[in-house]
Simulated scan of single mutants.
Amino acid sequence: MGGNLRRKQEKARPMPRQYLLDRAMWDAEHLRDVMREHVSEMIGDANGMLVIDETGFLKKGTKSVGVQRQYSGTAGRIENCQIGVFLTYTSLAGHTLLDRELYLPKSWINDHDRCREAGVPASVRFATKPQLAARMLWRTLDGGLAVRFVLGDSVYGSYRPLRAGLETRSQAYALAVACKEKVQVAGSRKRVDQVARQLAAGDWQRLSAGDGSKGPR
């Protein structure tokens, strides 16, 4: 879909495109919902998967909304950056971004003058990255997109309300958790590292996520 849009842009005159990106008023949330319906029609599949992840956008100044010195996985260290939480959809037919939320640190939320200057609505409240991810998941799942699994790392898997919300919806998931996390097994709560140690070697199956620069990942 992105390639088709890019080819159309290359053929179009520059001014209409600049107007759309710079000055046109349009409802981003409505467009997100329309795109989700389009994704469902084009690449929706009963075995489709939702993937939650975050990424950082390195910045030089202090005016970009949400910017501060914080850890960025993109840089692999603490940098002056913005952090976005993203929800993607993947199936055998293709993959695409579905939704996004900008993480606003407390340093921003608690500075009302700074938020007002940057155009942040007064109604915006602080939300952790897992809470932002949950918002996107509930919107998407309630929208009827076919999903078999929800995937994410321990930042999101360790947020129990997210896992509980998925279980309430009978939605299967594969979310990483910290080794100290406790889960319900045979009527009792156990740490996941204890459960893992009780499994036999034959209970595990190692799969590659694809080829990396140093071989299979």
Rank of each mutant, 00 (worst) to 15 (best):
V124M: 13
W204T: 07
Q70W: 01
R139A: 12
A174K: 13
L162I: 15
Y89N: 05
S208I: 11
L207Y: 08
G48M: 05
R100I: 03
S91E: 10
N4R: 05
L92D: 14
G76D: 04
D99Q: 02
K214R: 15
S72Q: 07
P121C: 15
N80R: 04
S107G: 05
D45V: 07
H38R: 10
H30P: 03
V147Q: 00
K63E: 03
L199Y: 03
G44Q: 05
K8Q: 12
P14Y: 12
D211V: 07
L141V: 02
S91C: 10
L20C: 04
P130N: 00
G56N: 00
R6I: 14
R139L: 11
A186S: 10
E29F: 08
K190I: 13
V34M: 04
V120E: 14
K180Y: 14
P130S: 00
R139P: 11
N47G: 13
G94A: 12
A172V: 03
G210K: 04
V34D: 05
D45W: 03
L87S: 13
E79Y: 01
M25F: 07
D53Y: 08
L5Q: 03
G210D: 08
A164V: 11
G212T: 00
G143D: 04
I78H: 08
Y71W: 00
R169E: 11
L50T: 00
D53M: 07
R6D: 06
M49I: 10
G187F: 08
E79F: 00
G187H: 04
N4A: 11
G215E: 06
D99R: 00
R135S: 10
Q205F: 05
V120R: 15
M35T: 13
R7D: 09
L92G: 11
R23E: 01
A200T: 05
R125K: 15
H112N: 10
F126M: 13
P14M: 06
R125C: 14
Q70I: 02
T62L: 04
L151D: 01
R116D: 13
R13H: 13
T55R: 01
N4M: 06
G76R: 01
Q18D: 01
P105A: 14
R32G: 12
A196D: 02
G66K: 00
G212L: 02
R6C: 10
D22S: 06
V150F: 07
M15R: 11
Q194S: 08
E117H: 13
T128W: 12
V65K: 12
L97W: 11
R217T: 00
Y159G: 12
G144P: 02
Y173W: 06
A172D: 13
L92P: 06
Q171R: 15
W138E: 09
K182D: 09
D153K: 01
P121R: 15
S72N: 05
K182V: 15
T55K: 02
I83P: 10
F126R: 09
G76I: 02
R13Q: 10
K182S: 12
V195M: 04
A127C: 08
T96A: 14
G119C: 08
G3T: 05
L166C: 03
G56A: 01
D99V: 02
